[in-house]
């Protein structure tokens, strides 16, 4: 199972700052996340959740230890290799970060065009399908300024999923959503895990999601202090 796992972290340590203000954010984090699983990462503020997400998401350099993502070692990897790996990920941020000048469907299209695909009818149909999945069929040509907070977040989720990523990294994605929309998002993510083997690693405090997660990993002070289904 470890060989097939999209995320394998071993003895990961990470620091921020330098000199006297240098602070260790992660201590010997070891974590394996199986393919298709839905893992919730929990812990108090400053516990290292976001650091784990950014390291796994190739957004920070691995300083110490090993992180294997989709079969590739991230420590010492070249930047073009990291960019190529990021294209296989789906990022959902706490803030939607939609492009204000692009309509909902255009924002979703950006999730396809990163793979070198053009703005064609097939791509538009795929983007429209992703938006429909999240109840935004009638909002496709709306600019973000004309969407509610929840609608924007759902567009951002559609953008993350439209490219069929191998791994979804999400940071409090349901914070801006109502109960029904939040559960719908979780259902979609779980269904993707079951049908396509898409893996989800999500930072959340939302109990509605924790109830449905396959596994809950708890971090405190940069250490894994609890793991509901430890692997590796």
């Amino acid at each position: 199972m470890t060989e097939d796992a999209p995320v394998v972290a071993r003895g990961v340590n990470h620091w921020f700052g330098a000199g006297e203000v240098r602070k260790q954010a992660l201590h010997d984090v070891t974590l394996t996340i199986p393919r298709g699983s839905f893992t919730a990462l929990v812990g108090p503020s400053g516990s290292g959740k976001t650091t784990v997400l950014t390291l796994v998401g190739c957004l920070r350099e691995v300083q110490d230890g090993s992180v294997r993502l989709l079969g590739h070692e991230l420590k010492g990897a070249r930047s073009d290799a990291l960019i190529a790996l990021r294209r296989r990920l789906g990022f959902i941020f706490q803030a939607h970060n939609l492009h204000e000048s692009l309509t909902a469907i255009e924002n979703v299209l950006m999730g396809l065009m990163v793979h070198g695909r053009a703005d064609g009818p097939t791509e538009r149909a795929a983007a429209a399908h992703a938006l429909t999945l999240f109840g935004l069929a009638d909002r496709m040509d709306y600019l973000p300024a004309n969407l509610s907070g929840g609608q924007k977040q759902r567009v951002a989720i559609a953008r993350a999923l439209v490219g069929n990523p191998d791994l979804i990294l999400a940071d409090e994605p349901t914070a801006a959503l109502d109960r029904e929309s939040g559960l719908n998002v979780v259902d979609v993510l779980k269904r993707l895990g079951q049908t396509r083997g898409t893996t989800t690693l999500m930072v959340t405090h939302d109990n509605r999601i924790l109830d449905r997660a396959d596994r809950i990993v708890t971090l405190e002070d940069g250490r894994i202090v609890a793991d509901s289904a430890p692997v590796g």
Partner: peptide
Amino acid sequence: REYATFKAMG
């Protein structure tokens, strides 16, 4: 922020 998002996306 939008550019950073696109960077993250690859």
